[in-house]
Amino acid sequence: MKAFEYAAPRTEAEILQVLSAEPGATEVLAGGTDLVGLMKKMLVTPDRVVNIMDVPSLKTIDELPDGSVSIGAAVTLDLILDHPYLDVYPAVKQAIRGINSMQLQCQGTLGGEVCQRPRCWFYRNGLGLLSESASEGANQYHAILGNTGPAKFVNSSRIAPALIALEAQLRVIGPGEDEERLIPVSEFFRTPRHDGQREHVLQPQQLVTHVILPPIAGRTCATYEVRDGEGPDYPLAAAAVAMRLDGYGIVHAAKVVLGQVAPTPWNSPEAERLLIGHPVDPRRAEQAGLAAVRMASPLSENTYKVQLAKVAVKRAILLAAGHETGGF
C-alpha cells in the first residue's frame, strides 16, 4: 500500500471537507472488503482515505413519511439481511444472502457493495479496466451485452439489479457544501469509454449517503443468481425482477434488470414488454428470458453466459411470481 492520510469524519459536512476534488486523490472507506485489497495491490493509490463508518447518519435505516425506506450507505449487509421490516424486498435480501460469507456480509456495506470496482481479472492484474485482453483472451466471465465499446467487464454489484428493479434512488451529497440530490439507481452506472473514467456518474467530491427504496406497494420481487458452488464467488449471471400483478395474476408493471452480464446493470425493456398484460407461467418467463438476451453479443469464451442470463431472468420472474424455478 502507498502511504496515505486517514480521515474519520463524524458528520456528512465533515466528509465533504476532507474529500478532494481531484480524481483518485481520495478514496472513501466503508467496510474495506474491496478497497483495502485494491490498495494492497497498488491498483488504487489515494493520498487520503476517508473512513465514513463513524458518521451516524450513514448508519441508520429509516422509514420516511411516504413509506419509503432509507438505508444508510454505511449500514452493513448483515443488518439489512436480518431486518424484518425489509422482508417485503426479497430481491434485496436474496442478493445479499447470495454473498455466502458471514464475514463479507458483516463487514461489507450497502454503499460499498453498490460502488465496488469491477471484479474483471484483467483490471485486477493491472492490465486496466478497458484491457484489450478481454476481447479475445480469458473472457469467460465478461460481458455479453453492452460490450461493443472498449469496456468488456461486468458490473459486479449484486444488489444493484434489485435496487433498479425496485426503482430505488441514491441520495448523493456534494460536491458543494450544501448540495444534495437524488439519483435513480438506474441512472447511476455508466459504461466508461476511456481510461480513467469511473463506472458511475459520481464526481470525486460526491458521496452516496443513502439508498431510498420506494414503498413496495403491492409489488412482488426476486433476485436469481446463477452461482457455481456455495462460496462467495460472484454469480455467473443474475437477474432481478419486480412486478405488479392484479388479482387475476396478470402482470401490470414489470422491471427486469440483469446483473453480471454488462458493464452496468442491464435493464431489459424487451423482457418487460413480454410480461405486461399476461399471467406468469414458465413459458412466458422463458420467452421473457429469451427476449432479454436477444441482443447479446458474446465474446470468444462466454457464449454460455447467454443461456445463463436467459435462465436467470426466467427464474427471477418465476420466483417473483411465487413459482418454483425447477432448478437449483
Binding site: R119, S133, G229, D233
Partner: peptide, 19 residues
Amino acid sequence: DPKTGKFINAELSDYKLAR
C-alpha cells in the same frame, strides 16, 4: 490468458476452491 501468458486468476477470490 493465452495472449499475455498471465496466470490471470492467481488470487483466492478468483482461484475457485470448494467451500
